[in-house]
Computed example of a mutant assay.
Amino acid sequence: MSTYLALKFAHLIAFVYWLGGDLGTFLASRQVMRTDLGPQARATALGIMLACDMGPKLAMPLILPIGLQLASDAGMLALPGWALPAIWLAALLWAGMVLFIYLREGQALAHRIAAIDFWFRIAVVLTLLGLTASIFAGAIAAAGIWLGWKLLIFSAMVCCGLVIRVQLKPFGPAFGAIMAGEDLERANASLQNSITRCRPWVWCIWAGLFINAALGLHLI
């Protein structure tokens, strides 16, 4: 198998794990919200939800450098020689932070890394918007304007993820209160409101994935 085909396969797998993991997370979240389930059952559902969520969380930083590498190797995108190594390094750092936060959940250092990760994603969005503008303006040679649209949509999906993170801030304290049996009515309401507010942004991410897949296949 050539390197190009291996990257193409990895790009496809990242898409599958992103969309499939998001669906698993979405379905598991419905069980977490069920007030008719006991605390242990809801804690098990939460564990499944967090594990499923690792698919999308790791796919997001990895699908970007793979896609840009494919475009560059196919002669569809002309980037400076330093750009791709820098993009790969940043993406691997991003994925490393995601994995560290998951493995050290609840620890003080994980919270600090999560804060860094949040601002790192904002930097990624700003960088990609600059690259997209350069493609649209013709300052960077690209095989088609569709590459710029794919990057713009990816940036929007990263922004949706940031909004979801903000909306989920009440989730942890509310779930902790439920596990402790404290003020269950208020805690359940807070938890359900938190997850419900996230749903439109999840649907936007799904729409972005479908559109980017269609752009990559030149269906639109």
Rank of each mutant, 00 (worst) to 15 (best):
D22M: 15
R30I: 05
V202E: 10
L162E: 14
I122T: 10
V202W: 13
A6Q: 14
L217E: 06
F154P: 03
I113L: 07
L12T: 12
L152K: 01
A6I: 14
F26V: 04
M60T: 05
D53G: 04
Q192G: 14
L58M: 12
A41H: 03
G38L: 01
L151M: 08
F210P: 08
D183W: 05
L151R: 06
L37V: 02
A123W: 01
C52G: 04
K169H: 11
L191A: 03
I145N: 15
A214W: 04
T127L: 15
C52D: 00
L64K: 04
G67P: 01
T127F: 15
E182V: 13
V202M: 14
I122Q: 07
A74N: 06
L162P: 02
D73E: 14
E105V: 08
L168F: 00
L89D: 09
T44K: 06
P173F: 00
L68K: 05
A10P: 10
L12Y: 09
A123K: 03
S194G: 12
I164L: 03
I195M: 00
P56V: 04
G161S: 12
M157L: 09
S72I: 13
P65Y: 05
C52V: 00
G20K: 03
W18S: 07
V163D: 07
H218C: 11
M33E: 08
L58R: 11
L23T: 04
G106F: 01
S29L: 12
R112E: 07
E185C: 08
H11F: 10
A177H: 05
M33C: 10
L46I: 06
L99S: 15
G38V: 06
A74Y: 08
K169E: 13
T196C: 08
G176A: 13
M76P: 06
A45L: 02
A141K: 14
L128M: 06
V163A: 15
G181D: 09
P39C: 04
T3W: 11
I145T: 14
N188V: 10
L84D: 11
L62S: 09
K150A: 13
F154T: 08
L58N: 00
R42S: 03
A51E: 01
W88G: 03
I122W: 10
L50V: 13
K169M: 05
L129R: 01
L62F: 04
D53T: 03
Q192C: 12
L147Q: 12
V16D: 01
L215Y: 10
M49F: 09
A71V: 07
S194A: 05
A174T: 03
L70I: 14
M157W: 02
C204W: 09
L126N: 08
V32G: 01
I116W: 12
S2W: 07
